[in-house]
Nucleic acid binder design. Sequence first.
DNA 1: TTCCGTGCAAACGCTTTGCACGCAT
DNA 2: ATGCGTGCAAAGCGTTTGCACGGAA
Lengths: 145, 145
Amino acid sequence: MDDCGNYKNYLNEHGMKSTKQRNLLLSILAKIQTPQTAEKLYLQAIKSDSSINLSTVYRVLEKFTEKNITIRTSFLDDKSVYSLYPKTHQHQLICMRCKKIVLLEHCPLEDFEKSVEESTHFSVVNHRLELYGYCRQCQKIIAMG
Amino acid sequence: MDDCGNYKNYLNEHGMKSTKQRNLLLSILAKIQTPQTAEKLYLQAIKSDSSINLSTVYRVLEKFTEKNITIRTSFLDDKSVYSLYPKTHQHQLICMRCKKIVLLEHCPLEDFEKSVEESTHFSVVNHRLELYGYCRQCQKIIAMG
DNA sequence: TTCCGTGCAAACGCTTTGCACGCAT
DNA sequence: ATGCGTGCAAAGCGTTTGCACGGAA
């Protein structure tokens, strides 16, 4: 991907036609660090292309996710959020006070998945793991009352 | 809780009025091993009380969850499921085809949380872990095409 | 030229809510 | 008697879909 907003080759390589809507969303996703809702991405997109439609954003994100270009996550009672597919397997540590997110590169679940497969006869293909707690600063703030 | 479907004392102790709908849902939840959707619980409930309403089921489950009598979980693109609040810490293994849920009693994250606390200076107070895969039966069905 | 992608509006599915009535306290 | 809980219907909300048009290959 280059950084001028033209992902034609990239899209064609993934079996998709290049359209201005897809290029635009790719450039927005590339700039964004944290997962965003479809609506936030849409609001960002109409700054560049006021005619883009929310349902197009959903359709593009669905197609991207199908191609593993993006990943879709959802939390209880919340909208889904989308981000570029992480280059490495990772998990998130979330501060429950300030919502800061720390990415954890190490995943401790490989052996656990194997033992679960043996005991349940499931084939385990994926998992979801998030840690919740309080970051150093928020711990101090909480301790001060 | 007794097993004849009368949870009056239990409900009153939790600051709730005893109603036939709440008693009925508690007795259904007590009999069920795996988390169920509101609709499934509703379908079970109308067998005993054909006048109970789906919105009542939602309201009762919301109240129960608020009181930590039940727990509510949701997965990407799926309905929420409810179960009695687990007595022990546990996780879920979910079949991505038939949505069957197997409860896992062992949690492999204790050491991991400690090491994360040391490396990040967070205090970790909670986590969310789910495994996704295919159960034995669905593996066979998928293999047959 | 041929379809795939899009804008628009409407439908969808789960869940929540407004209202008036009924029942537990 | 009081006010919470309920049935019913309708609304909410994020997301998906039908349709006809437009644009990429």
